[in-house]
Write a protein that binds this DNA or RNA. Sequence first.
DNA 1: TTGAAAGCGCTACCAC
DNA 2: GTGGTAGCGCTTTCAA
Lengths: 348, 348
Amino acid sequence: MTLEDVAKRARVSTATVSRVLNGARGVRPATQARVLRAAEELHYTPDLNARSLAGGQPRSLGMVVSNIVNPFFLDIFRSVEARARQRGYDLIVANTDYAPDRLASSIMTILGRRVAGLALVVSETVPPVVSTIAAKLPIVLYDGGGHRLKDVTNIRANYRGGMQRIVEYLHALGHRRMAFIGHHTRLGPLHERREAFLSIAEEYAPRSKVMTVESADGLAGGQEAMRHILDSGFKPTAIACVNDFMAVGAVRELHVRGVSVPGDMSVTGFDNVALSEFAVPSLTTADVPRETIGRLICDALIPSAGEDRPLFRTEMVVETQLIVRESTAPPRSRSVRQGQRRTATASR
Amino acid sequence: MTLEDVAKRARVSTATVSRVLNGARGVRPATQARVLRAAEELHYTPDLNARSLAGGQPRSLGMVVSNIVNPFFLDIFRSVEARARQRGYDLIVANTDYAPDRLASSIMTILGRRVAGLALVVSETVPPVVSTIAAKLPIVLYDGGGHRLKDVTNIRANYRGGMQRIVEYLHALGHRRMAFIGHHTRLGPLHERREAFLSIAEEYAPRSKVMTVESADGLAGGQEAMRHILDSGFKPTAIACVNDFMAVGAVRELHVRGVSVPGDMSVTGFDNVALSEFAVPSLTTADVPRETIGRLICDALIPSAGEDRPLFRTEMVVETQLIVRESTAPPRSRSVRQGQRRTATASR
DNA sequence: TTGAAAGCGCTACCAC
DNA sequence: GTGGTAGCGCTTTCAA
């Protein structure tokens, strides 16, 4: 089923069919109708590969994310996709599962589709080749953490500020022994987030004791990290998690062990994904505005009407906001009792 | 950066470069090395559009899902993707958000990419055009519900059986007044699921009273549906939800109102997504084996070694399994007290 | 307003 | 082993 088939049936040339299908003006209404009808009757489906090979400007964007299962990344994806669609672009996603080697190959795959722009929403350290690509293609890097890239639009959330508000809040509640649950310490950006927690905890509570634990990103990872903490002998009264997703897993482990939240222990998340509001107890967290981020990403990749290239900015920072919910409270005066495990009914 | 650039630099023809890059045998090692180095030095990225235009068999699969945010669909997606990748294919996804008109356009878009096969993992009624397509392309329909399509591999989970085990279990616990929370009644397949609940509830407890409520798929939808039930005056002792995702929202609403689960009310989910295990309380649910479904989908789309077309089967049914966790218990002898709301601290 | 034809970058076939 | 080259289906000049 090709353009030519449609052309034959409508008794016009392929050029005319192409014009009609692309909404070009300057085609006689009668001809147009004939073409449309022919295409309809033949169930014609344009070959997008041929189209983008032949065509001028590409009409798709590419995006690489670290963990599509984490609702944070999923929300960003959906936000970018919605806005892109609105502007006539579609979005190709690739997922790395935090595997550094999959980052490079994902970038290649997407570039192979000849996209108009590329968004890297990843926690991994981006390969140097990206700078080279940036010369020919608008690139956005979200959460590059430490390293801002030249010629690339760097968008980041003020994680340090958010973490500061969280620690400050916990401190104000009276917490002095805290722990941090993170993941993949080796990855630059995430490492930085952990450091933020450490230095801020230090600043707000010089006498405070802290520990940090890392596990895989996800519900199971959060649970496992909490298990480590509880088994370590260190008895914090509050736990700050790197994101909501892991926090839900952490809360689950506390539930299994009969440690009440926030009665016996406070827990905080980060991101303010929908789940944080529906969890029981709902999570105190820091809102990272995913809608805004998606919008900024799109605007940095798609040229606005009349422009040739999208407006380039080196760096943009979005603010985070403390959201207080049920998972935090002042610590009990007596220390949290440990080891009062009950049968772990639902853990595997 | 094209094949020709690489060819020039390596002082060979484009044909040879193509051979090397596609791992064909019969190229002198020295030549091969030269080509590889040239490609490397130029940061050559093959144009996938041109490749699939020119090439023989397409190496990608397409898939349409109803709601990528629902972890059930996300798991299926990941399962199919993993297996496809393993067999050298990649996966293009489109998401409809349950909008029937987006189903048709999603199918067009994917077909436009000239995929080797198409999986429809949707709750919407599929358009008739699908039968036409099936003549040229392997198609899998998951959860077509009522209508099995001819010439299409129909995969479905035994929802009725799962629902039966759930209702049976609730009945055995002593529940007689139940409600069902679903979504999008108008959509064929989902309607059927609700009917299954009704008829089974009828069968197991002839004297039982039931009500059904529909809302949007998702956490917020589950919460809203539960709100309707609680405000309706009908006081069930157990609630069966169409999926885990909505169940978590339902449980949240009960928590907000101070109704304890499972003390005052039992709740069940469906699917057994990871979240159901990490929720507080964890959910009694029916496992729908998403890994298996992903495998079946792939195998119905990709020809096995030596074959020309994948093995065609009209229908395959996967079984569901009851998973008992914390969210269900016998009803209290006294009726559930209603309206003892406490301040809804975190609802908006 | 429409048609003819030149590519887009690649693969695959046929020569050498 | 390697090169030449004919398309794949489409968009886009350039002519008519």
